[in-house]
């Protein structure tokens, strides 16, 4: 069991980080901490993907010295997926930060529970 986890160290770490990330996202009340949790969660998935595509001892798939055999290179698809994923998570972080700024200007606090309580008193 431990042997297996150690052999797949990157994946094990990625899953643990994923768990930490989504617990922070769901359980913390502070909005900035929630956003940090979101980023940890996304980064864990990127670690998972990137470690899957890497084959030790092989090079990045850019042909410079004329070697065209696929055997010489690592799998480039996970790297492509990670890049797409990074773009998505950057835009989500931006949106969440923008929402946080708006909420802070309106309620002068970052505590989600407090904000919800203040908002309940308003007229819909």
């Amino acid at each position: 069991m431990w042997q297996l986890l150690y052999e797949n160290l990157e994946q094990t770490v990625a899953v643990i980080l994923f768990g930490i990330g989504f617990s922070i996202l769901l359980l913390q009340r502070n909005l900035i901490r929630k956003i940090i949790g979101l980023n940890i969660m996304d980064t864990a998935v990127y670690l998972f993907l990137a470690s899957m595509g890497y084959i030790s001892g092989k090079k990045a798939p850019i042909v410079v010295d004329g070697v065209t055999s696929a055997e010489a290179y690592i799998n480039p698809i996970p790297a492509g997926l990670v890049l797409t994923g990074i773009v998505v998570s950057v835009s989500f972080t931006a949106i969440m930060l923008a929402l946080t700024v708006r909420l802070y200007r309106r309620y002068h606090t970052l505590d989600m529970d407090e904000i919800a309580m203040l908002a309940r008193g308003e007229d819909g």
Binding site: L99, R102, L103, R106, Y107, M112, I115, A119, E122
Partner: peptide, 10 residues
């Protein structure tokens, strides 16, 4: 733009 939609969307 009001408080309710901001909280709901968060």
């Amino acid at each position: 733009q009001n408080g309710h939609t901001l909280v709901a969307i968060t």
